[in-house]
Amino acid sequence: MCREDALVRIARIAWVVLCLLTLATWAVGRAGLYGPAIVALLLLSVLVKGQVVIDVFMGLRGVRGPWRWLVSGWLVTVLVLIGVAYWSGREA
């Protein structure tokens, strides 16, 4: 199997994973679920989805230099701070 065949196959799996996680997020919203555990799960789901996009779709996995870490770092920082904001809102 050539490199491009493997890329296409992995991208297809990634697409399915992203769709399933999106449907799960939609189901959480439709069911009206809320609370710290739900928010933590949603943020974890976004982290997984975002990292899949960064590694597979953007193709940053294994790239020389800081690029993958810069984009992944952006994702992790934003999600952690959203979590902090959510918790600070609960305490207010």
Binding site: L18, T25, G29, L43, V46, G50, V53, V78
Partner: peptide, 12 residues
């Protein structure tokens, strides 16, 4: 990538 963060944050 940006929409993947935006959707749960604003809608859910």
């Amino acid at each position: 990538l940006v929409w993947i963060v935006l959707f749960p944050l604003v809608y859910v």
